[in-house]
């Protein structure tokens, strides 16, 4: 077995940090604005962080040379997004009556389904 030391790549580190920070910020600020309407949007658009996420995401993909799989993290993220989507859908679909529960279940499972499809297509 040959051990290689991971090479430090400054651009990749910066763009990865930018992407993760922007994405986390977008989620946190957006949720803060949902919980307390106007908390963020009175002063600036929360979508600035989404724009930053997209920009850093593109830059990161351009400088990324090696991709390390972390399936456990992916699954955890998919479950987290599923829960968030389910909660949001439950709140928004109050008028849908009997369709509310199946719709919530479907949205809860959507991130896992998408993740499974993306993994199988490789």
């Amino acid at each position: 077995m040959i051990w290689y030391q991971k090479m430090f790549k400054p651009l990749e580190a910066i763009t990865r940090t930018g992407f993760l920070v922007s994405l986390t910020s977008y989620i946190v600020f957006w949720l803060a604005d949902v919980v307390q309407p106007g908390f963020v949007s009175r002063y600036f658009s929360v979508h600035i962080f989404l724009l930053a996420t997209v920009v850093f995401g593109i830059l990161w993909s351009m400088v990324l040379e090696e991709y390390e799989q972390r399936p456990l993290i992916h699954i955890l993220l998919a479950i987290t997004f599923g829960v968030v989507l389910a909660v949001l859908t439950w709140g928004l679909a109050a008028d849908l009556g009997v369709y509310r529960v199946p719709l919530v279940l479907l949205t809860a499972l959507t991130p896992m389904i998408l993740y499974a499809l993306m993994r199988d297509s490789r």
Partner: peptide, 27 residues
């Protein structure tokens, strides 16, 4: 180079934290 990279990473993290402190102060 590592120092500069870490500084920029710190700066990227500090921006949303500063914004959050500012918003909490306004609130």
């Amino acid at each position: 180079m590592i120092f500069l990279t870490r500084f920029i990473q710190f700066f990227l993290v500090a921006i949303p934290l500063t914004v959050m402190v500012w918003l909490v102060n306004l609130w």
